[in-house]
């Protein structure tokens, strides 16, 4: 089970630069759709990679779906060598995205995110327009229903303003 509030807390309190995308971002915007993992776009500066390793290392991250016993060192070298990592941690499922289709990297996404307070932690969430764009770009049939919902949410939000 993913305790995404604890994961968000760990990331935020460690000073990690990240932006929440995916299903948790949708939920933050009001979507009632369930999601069971936390997707974040992370900044790939050397300092942020080091912070990620320091913060997530104690949570024993491993590659989701990998054969048991497959060697995996969650360190700066590994993060540098890869880009996107689908992880199991002690607090659940976490997806680290270095570059997201339709959105680019952290710096490209940053102007399209907002800071939100979540149980004392300050976290960035991608904005609704961009979230819709990301899902449309991904083009996965399983997202069509979610896109419909998010666009209606956007319409409702626009009417409220």
């Amino acid at each position: 089970m993913t305790d995404f509030r604890r994961v968000l807390s760990v990331l935020a309190e460690s000073g990690i630069e990240f932006i929440v995308v995916g299903g948790v971002a949708a939920a933050a915007h009001g979507s009632p759709r369930a999601t069971f993992d936390l997707d974040v776009v992370y900044r790939r500066t050397p300092q942020n990679l080091a912070r990620l390793v320091a913060a997530l290392g104690p949570l024993h991250p491993s590659l989701r779906g990998a054969p048991p016993g497959l060697p995996f060192n969650f360190d700066v070298q590994t993060l540098k060598a890869g880009l996107n990592f689908t992880l199991c941690t002690d607090f659940g499922l976490l997806v680290l995205i270095g570059d997201i289709a339709g959105g680019g990297d952290y710096d490209a996404l940053l102007p399209h995110s907002t800071l939100q307070a979540v149980h004392g932690a300050s976290c960035r969430f991608v904005d609704l327009d961009t979230l819709i764009h990301l899902k449309r770009t991904a083009g996965r049939p399983k997202d069509f229903e979610a896109i419909a919902e998010l666009e209606l949410l956007r319409d409702a939000t626009d009417r409220q303003q």
Partner: peptide, 26 residues
């Protein structure tokens, strides 16, 4: 898909704060 979306449910979600929405998910 939009035709089958529960608009009432969406509107209920919009009444919540971001923190409340995430608590609901949790």
């Amino acid at each position: 898909y939009k035709k089958d979306v529960d608009l009432g449910l969406l509107l209920e979600g919009l009444k919540l704060t971001v923190e409340q929405r995430l608590d609901r998910l949790a």
